[in-house]
Design a protein around this nucleic acid. Structure first.
Length: 265
DNA sequence: GTTCTCGGCCG
DNA sequence: CGGCCGAGAAC
């Protein structure tokens, strides 16, 4: 007899994951049930820690209820030591590659968008129509960029840019390491001018006074001299590129000539 | 060997 | 009480 136990699709999980509930039918614990999950590849998971281990550091199952298979927003409170250990493992190991913003550090595979409650019924204090449309942004999210390096096709790590001395980082872990990333990200994500943190208060207590739409960088000024220098670099780079393209074109031309000669012979 | 199942520890 | 996992039973 083939008693197919029911493996249900689990809406809270990515496609392909299955959930199974097995009722114990004998023994002292008869009637109790055990819950298992199956990855798309068929691997069986019988506990939340096991699932967590498999999914890695980028995933937080903190508010995932293993038994029901659903997200339980209510279980979000007891995040005491978790953040510390997460940040620790993050700085030592591989960085979290998920840099889409805004996002929680504790994001799980199950969609967990950052939301902002702006309108509480019967609570005038928390009603704020002005800010209702603004996106929340995580303070110091740039720290997550630490350790990220660009590399070429041979996986050789590219040398990072040298930043001008005038640029100085702000905030916790104010190393130069993330400064370049922070500035590059700011330029990439906004068409607004990037000025750095113009408020001097931000230096004393960035956690409070940080302007989150600016990178973790002290205010700086760009002089005409800076601009001319940069223009020069761009011109030189373009010349180099032009020469390289020219050389490549000539090489290809020679090659095609040789090809036709070979065919003729 | 692998998979299934229940016991039992531990928080 | 329930989550988690060890280990014996079953295959």
């Amino acid at each position: 007899m083939i008693m197919e136990r029911k493996k249900t699709d689990c809406p809270a999980l990515p496609p392909g994951w299955k959930k199974e509930e097995v009722i114990r039918k004998s023994g002292l614990s008869a009637g109790k049930s055990d819950v298992y999950y199956y990855s798309p590849t068929g691997k069986k998971f019988r506990s939340k820690p096991q699932l967590s281990r498999y999914l890695g550091n980028t995933v937080d199952l903190g508010c995932f209820d293993f038994r029901t298979g659903k997200m339980m927003p209510s279980k979000m409170q007891k995040n005491k030591q978790r953040l510390r250990s997460d940040n620790l493992s993050l700085s030592k190991g591989k960085p979290d590659l998920n840099t889409a913003l805004p996002i929680r550090q504790t994001a799980s595979i199950f969609k967990q968008p950052v939301t902002k409650v702006v309108n509480h019924p019967n609570n005038k204090v928390k009603t704020d129509l002005q800010r209702a449309t603004e996106q929340p942004r995580q303070l110091f999210w740039e720290k997550r960029l630490k350790g990220l390096r660009s590399s070429d096709v041979s996986e050789e790590v590219l040398r990072t840019m040298d930043l001008p001395k005038g640029l100085q980082s702000i905030g916790p872990d104010s190393s130069d390491e993330t400064l370049l990333s922070a500035i590059a990200s700011a330029l990439h994500m906004s068409s607004a001018p990037i000025t750095g943190q113009t408020s001097s208060a931000a230096e004393k207590n960035p956690a409070i006074w940080l302007n989150s739409s600016q990178p973790l960088c002290r205010a700086f000024t760009v002089t005409d001299e800076d601009i001319r220098e940069q223009e020069l670099k761009v011109h030189q780079a373009r010349r180099s590129l032009e020469e390289a393209l020219m050389a490549d074109t000539l090489a290809r031309a020679n090659e095609s000539v040789r090809d036709s000669e070979d065919r003729a012979a």
